[in-house]
Nucleic acid binder design. Structure first.
Lengths: 214, 214
DNA sequence: GACAACATACCGACCGGTTGGTAGCATTGA
DNA sequence: TCAATGCTACCAACCGGTCGGTATGTTGTC
């Protein structure tokens, strides 16, 4: 029994494969339109295995939302903008990074939990909560840099670091919808540019105090 | 035959009732999760009548997207902000109005086409196109005021009126997602505030030239 | 031989869509 | 004038197929 902890990955991970299948399929077609059979086929797993690991389709969705938090957390942690010393540069670098990511298939850069929460917010509280936690968790990391930037640049403002961080997420989610509607990324990129410009404007007076370059 | 044209609406409109049912149900539960039977029940119509008026569920969705354009067009046209003489005031008034609308049930203020396009962008090109047309059509009205405001206030900028108009729609769509995820409207309202502040900042230098009041 | 980790076969409910049919009205020709 | 005809609008019953989920069997490991 104790050894189970030290030797848990006996195979390539059926659970993991279902989680990955959920991410890709639900990002492509949405939650309701994705069937359990499709998830099993994509994962190369039988239905019996599915319900052995997850007690329902909704339980997989909750697990997938948490899985998404871990994946994106690790992904953004390795991004280059984290190494900048000025926290404002990190925030702006974060936006540049998010803009640079808008490449290839739409389902390749859109937000899994943002897509899912639209469909299930009124019918599946557990999934909604997991999506909310994922978005808020990611926003909290942006918020930390914003808060530090406000302190560093001595910004006193009618807005809070928390609300600005959540605003960045709202803009990104909205940009994804525009990309889906337009069938292209150019409008989404332009929207991120606007957000970038907004944050520059918010911090502009303080910036001019510190550096004389425009 | 000619009389047929002058007397086509003989009843209370089965088609209209199905359109309305589509708007409310799909905004609540999404496109895939809404069944044809549910649409018929809500509209008080039989399934045979459904497929008499619409050749498929998708065809209803396309018609509903166009219906949505008409409804929202008429709704915003009667809004008070249109009477302001300064086009910039109209743009900012538009945002105030959109913020003021965030009341009651979530499905009561969210965007029908924005919700739907997320689910079907990859699987149903016709619906996607109708959604895109609806969003772009609405954005075009905002764009007209922005363009006029740029001219009036002699703004020369690296951004275009079109991109800013689409950005407003992106922020609104994102705000709706945040409302759905959080289960409340406060973050959505804060996001609209940020957008409001952004546009004020963009037009600030010109404003100060024209009026001395802050 | 106990137990986890699957696989297979299957369930009733529900899916989007089709069917044959009819009620009611407009058009037509004798 | 009015039966014959044709057409739209609509209905209830039903279609094959798919849905999420379950019951039971098999297999490998301790």
């Amino acid at each position: 029994m104790d050894r189970g902890i030290t030797s848990p990955p006996p195979k390539a991970g059926v659970r993991q494969k279902l989680l990955d299948a959920a991410l890709s399929l639900i990002r492509e077609k949405g939650y309701s339109a994705t069937s359990v059979d499709q998830l099993c086929t994509q994962a190369g797993v039988t239905k019996g295995a599915f319900f052995h690991h997850f007690k329902s389709k909704g339980a997989l969705a909750v697990a997938a939302a948490n899985h998404w938090s871990e994946i994106t957390g690790a992904f953004f942690e390795t991004a280059p903008y984290h190494q900048r010393s000025d926290p404002l540069d990190r925030v702006l670098g974060y936006l540049d990074f998010r803009k640079a990511i808008l490449k290839g298939e739409i389902a390749g850069f859109t937000c899994f939990v943002g897509t899912m929460v639209q469909e299930i917010y009124g019918t599946n509280p557990d999934i909604r909560e997991a999506c909310e936690a994922s978005i808020s968790g990611h926003a909290a990391k942006v918020e930390a840099d914003i808060r530090e930037a406000m302190k560093r640049h001595r910004i006193r403002a009618p807005w809070t670091a928390a609300s600005l961080a959540l605003h960045t997420q709202a803009v990104l989610q909205g940009a994804f919808i525009m990309a889906k509607a337009k069938g292209g990324t150019s409008i989404a990129a332009a929207s991120i540019d606007h957000l970038h410009r907004y944050i520059e404007l918010l911090f502009q007076p303080a910036r001019h105090k510190r550096k004389e370059s425009s």
